[in-house]
Design a protein around this nucleic acid. Structure first.
Lengths: 160, 160
DNA sequence: CTTGATATGTTATAAAATAACATTTAACAA
DNA sequence: TTGTTAAATGTTATTTTATAACATATCAAG
């Protein structure tokens, strides 16, 4: 157990489970979790933080994959399109999804001190979205919710 | 009156009022709404859409201001820091604030067909944020909420 | 075995943003 | 008045982020 994210968890098994789940989902949906794509997902899961595309690219290149930008961007496109990875727009960075179970609109807490990003689920938010749809006549396809601030751990540190 | 945004309004007076309000706020807070900054705000208000930094830069250059990227980015930094303009992260674009009255966390509806962006206020959302703070111990400084979809007007058009 | 769709790799370039530094301006103290 | 400082503007150069365009490879279906 270690303190990645904003709370502790068994990181190795979390990676293993997530990759297995991705493989199964791809199998069911006829998607190809090719070597680059799988490795990209693994790297993002291992890092367990928001990674920039070029940092992922470096890692992929070291693992013997192509070394040019499209290699990373294409893998990321596949993974984000299929919900395995999310893009954090505020950081121009990508993070592995940690809430595969829910057909959620993801919400991210971004700590500006430690730069860690935590994905949470807010069922209340879903209600708000549907309220917006009925009152405004706007049909929602995706909702991006990025909350920036200071996480509990960093608050403790700065209080000292 | 015309149909900019997702609903009609008197656009000229809206610009005039917004600039006047910005001048007053700057005066009160000891901020300098210099010529480039004021002109940038005017352009964004006139356009009434999310503009990219380089498009704003072109307009500023034509008006006799500097023609290099920092000119636009610095004006935008001032305007966003002080709440006169918001950045739409999904579009890498900037839009004039249309809800100066509220000390709001802004919410944007982005139509993927007509590319128009509408700023709304969701008081319910504010409650959710404070809920997040108490349950997670995370102190929020800013919340970014960008909703993408199809606006009412475009839905009518595509239904035809 | 060839056709078509998908995926991978490359080079080249576009788009978005910032660093670093010189010059200007205005407020203010000496 | 002059000198000093802080803020703002301007420039060149560079970094960071992302995509276009095209060649090659892989593999299942006809």
């Amino acid at each position: 157990m270690n303190g990645i994210g904003f709370h502790s968890h068994d990181h190795k098994s979390c990676i293993f489970e997530a990759v297995k789940a991705a493989e199964e989902q791809c199998c069911r949906q006829g998607l190809q979790l090719t070597p680059v794509r799988k490795r990209s997902l693994e790297i993002l899961l291992e890092e367990h933080r928001a990674m920039r595309a070029y940092d992922l690219l470096d890692r992929l290149a070291k693992d013997g994959f192509g070394s040019q930008p499209p290699v990373a961007y294409r893998a990321l496109e596949f993974l984000t399109n299929n919900g395995f990875v999310h893009k954090i727009e505020k950081l121009n960075a990508f993070i592995a999804c940690t809430h595969r179970e829910s057909g959620h609109m993801p919400v991210f807490l971004i700590c500006s001190q430690c730069e860690r990003v935590s994905e949470i689920v807010l069922p209340e938010a879903e209600e708000i979205w549907s309220g917006v749809e009925t009152t405004s006549g706007f049909s929602i396809t995706t909702a991006l919710l990025e909350i920036e601030g200071v996480c509990a751990a960093c608050k403790v540190n700065t209080d000292k």
